[in-house]
């Protein structure tokens, strides 16, 4: 252990100035999140969904009757651009919430479980700043996951099926480039759809030091919301469930473009952000860090 000159006169009586690197924690969070093998594995699995779907359709000789199987599936053989849409419909009820549950549930509880939470906080990261950075990381994961699915769907669709102008649900036909733009719109719709669940996960994550518990609880919440959403007796509740508009992106596949459900969905998700953000904040700023 050699001594160094850096620490000579190690008694700064004035506070060191805040350097402009307030953002570097966000950079570090993103790089740690996306270089984790677990995150990469989940993204790989997300990318596999459209691939499996397209290969299965390609290999089966029977043609599907219109309306059979998941929405759009019957159109895949005519136009590869439908692979991404179909895969999104398949992934959104369970698989995407599962990955969000893992990422959002891990945010605070994962750091607590490792014990690194106390070192981040004595650095000091600032509790509010840490919450914001953690949420930003989870939100970015939502975006990356849906984009991964969209891109993977477009590529495998183009490889296995003919690609051409797309006939929409409304009967109108749009060009290939327009249809790719619609795919991105669908991806952003689904990303927004998952933001509320991410905030719920963040809140649950502040409640425990056991990351697996927070992950499981977040996934359970998403399943329960979807179950409630199909019980007719609870129809008054349905518009308030964060999962209510999850499959509403079909509206984005009409001509003229209908952004109504996009807006309603965004407002609903904002409400969840506000409520669960406030809960996470009030819980975390007063939490005793005993991990």
């Amino acid at each position: 252990m050699s001594s160094s000159d850096v620490r000579r006169g190690a008694r700064p009586s004035v506070m060191p100035k805040r350097s402009s690197s307030g953002w570097s924690l966000l950079g570090s969070e993103i790089s740690v999140l996306f270089r984790r093998r677990r995150t990469c594995a989940m993204l790989a699995a997300v990318a596999l969904i459209p691939i499996l779907l397209a290969v299965a359709v390609r290999l089966s000789s029977e043609a599907l009757a219109p309306g059979e199987g998941p929405p759009f599936l019957d159109r895949v053989t005519q136009n590869g651009l439908f692979v991404g849409f179909t895969a999104m419909v398949v992934a959104i009820p369970l698989f995407l919430p599962l990955t969000i549950g893992v990422v959002a549930g891990d945010t605070i509880a994962g750091e607590a479980g490792l014990g690194t939470l106390r070192y981040l906080l004595v650095a000091p990261a600032g509790r509010v700043r840490l919450l914001l950075v953690k949420y930003a990381g989870a939100a970015l994961f939502c975006l990356v996951a849906t984009l991964t699915l969209t891109v993977s769907g477009a590529i495998i669709g183009a490889v296995l099926f003919p690609v051409g102008p797309v006939t929409l649900l409304s009967g109108d036909t749009i060009s290939v480039s327009e249809s790719l733009a619609r795919s991105l719109l669908v991806a952003s719709y689904v990303t927004v759809s998952l933001l509320g669940l991410s905030m719920i996960g963040l809140f649950i994550s502040t409640l425990t030091d056991v990351p697996v518990g927070a992950m499981a609880a977040t996934i359970v919440v998403s399943v329960v919301a979807q179950i409630l959403d199909v019980i007719p007796q609870l129809s008054w509740l349905h518009p308030w469930l964060f999962s209510h508009y999850w499959l509403g992106f079909a509206d984005l596949l009409r001509q003229p473009l209908d952004l109504g459900s996009f807006g309603q969905n965004a407002i609903l998700q904002l409400c969840y952000l506000a409520i669960f953000g406030a809960l996470a904040y009030s819980r975390f700023v007063t939490k005793d860090i005993l991990s």
Binding site: S19, S21, S24, S28, R37, T116, A123
Partner: peptide, 20 residues
Amino acid sequence: FLSGAANLRRLDTADRHAPG
């Protein structure tokens, strides 16, 4: 899952006063 040096860099970014 991070190296020793990467761990220290990560914790250093948490301090806003630590020059990058």
